[in-house]
Simulated scan of single mutants.
Amino acid sequence: MELKQLQTFVTIARRGSFTQAAQELGYAQSTITTQIQLFEQELGTRLFERLGRSVALTPAGAKLLEYARPILRLCAEAQRAVAVGENMRGILTIGAVESLCVVRLPELVREYRRRYPEVEIALKIANCADFRELLGENQIDVAFFLDQAIAAPDLVTALQVPEPLTFLAMPGHPLISRAPIGPADLAGASLILTEAGCSYRRALESTLAGAGVKPHSVLETGSLQAIKQFTMDGMGITLLPRIAATAELADGRLVKLDWIGPEFAMLTQLVYHKDKWLSPPLRAFIALAQARMGRDNGAVARRKAGEMAGEIGDSESFASLS
């Protein structure tokens, strides 16, 4: 049993496709197929059930997955522990949804790189549903979730910051004159939404379904900028984190709709896996995020940042942020 086989196996299980796994790993699909066939021969059992283009784990495959993920995670941790030691160098892989990557991370990453120039940073843009698996497989070190409060036993939340959502429309949109608006006012409306799997889209659809409301149409795109542009062009209304449209609201290109429906209670949350080894670069990043993003969220966040900064022997520089 080789680590390469386990990595291929876990990737196929996560993507549900030999083709997509091959693309992610940079292999030809025939190479992926051969790896799994040899692996199944070695184990003496089938790991995947293939029906047409559909791929599903067999009971044996599901059992192996329970072991494969922690094995890969521990191997990656061991490699990093040996390579990094106690030095502030290495690679830090950060997951973030696009809206946070655009408006929350630039200042944070800029300051981190100024302090620790020998640490390489890799950003992975995805949705919150993907981050749970990526953290569990150690594909990313830490993730910024934009979601309702996370209470998963295998995840640790290092930071929580309230993230207000706002309904937005172009100036002169008919719904502006009907303010305040609730779920019933969205019946027959044209909505411009993020891709399926986005936490606040899921919350909105749940609210509308609970009220028995069906929109006229939904235009879906994964681009934050495209959502705002389509809204400014009058193609519909949208729901976004308020911070993502600060500039457009300030100069009047977008208008906030007064919403009196259920609150969505979204939070920006910095999360890592409970079994994750907190390397010095990772501890430093978490501490800086707590200090920068949590300083307006009360003394608790500042105290935690100071405690973690002390762990890496950099308490003076972090204290200056409080």
Rank of each mutant, 00 (worst) to 15 (best):
R89H: 15
V103E: 13
A68E: 07
G61V: 08
L38R: 15
E86N: 12
L72W: 05
L134I: 00
E111L: 15
Q35E: 08
Y116E: 06
L74T: 15
E42K: 06
R110V: 04
R110Y: 13
A68C: 07
L65Y: 10
R113P: 01
A78E: 15
E133I: 02
R15V: 08
R114G: 13
L38G: 08
V55D: 05
G85S: 04
A13Q: 07
E118G: 02
G16F: 11
I94P: 01
R14S: 04
R73P: 01
L51T: 13
L123S: 03
E49M: 14
A76K: 15
T31A: 14
T31M: 03
F131P: 01
E66D: 05
S30I: 08
L43F: 01
R114P: 03
V82R: 14
E111C: 07
Q41I: 02
L25S: 06
L65Q: 11
L74F: 13
T45S: 06
A76R: 15
Y27K: 03
I121T: 13
I121A: 03
R110E: 15
Y67C: 12
V109Q: 07
R69P: 00
I91S: 11
E77N: 10
A96Q: 00
G61N: 09
G61P: 08
F39D: 08
L123C: 03
L25P: 10
S54F: 02
E118M: 12
E49P: 00
F18Q: 11
A96C: 10
V84N: 06
R113W: 04
V119W: 09
A21V: 09
Q20C: 01
L64S: 07
C128A: 09
R50N: 04
L25Q: 03
Y116I: 04
R14T: 02
R110P: 01
L43R: 12
P59H: 05
T11Y: 00
I125P: 00
R14A: 09
F18G: 09
A28G: 09
T31N: 14
A96Y: 01
E120V: 09
C128T: 08
K63I: 10
L65T: 01
R14W: 01
R15T: 11
I12F: 08
E42L: 06
N87D: 14
P59F: 06
I32G: 06
R132D: 11
E77L: 12
G90R: 01
A81M: 12
I91F: 05
K124Y: 00
A122F: 09
E98I: 07
R114H: 11
A13R: 00
E107V: 06
Q35V: 02
K124N: 11
P117N: 05
S17V: 10
A62T: 09
R89L: 11
I125H: 00
G16Y: 10
A56T: 14
E133L: 06
K63L: 14
A83C: 06
V102F: 04
V82H: 11
P117C: 09
A62C: 02
R113F: 03
V82A: 15
E118K: 11
Y112H: 07
R104G: 02
A21H: 12
E86C: 02
E111K: 13
T19I: 12
L134E: 06
L38T: 11
L51H: 10
E120C: 07
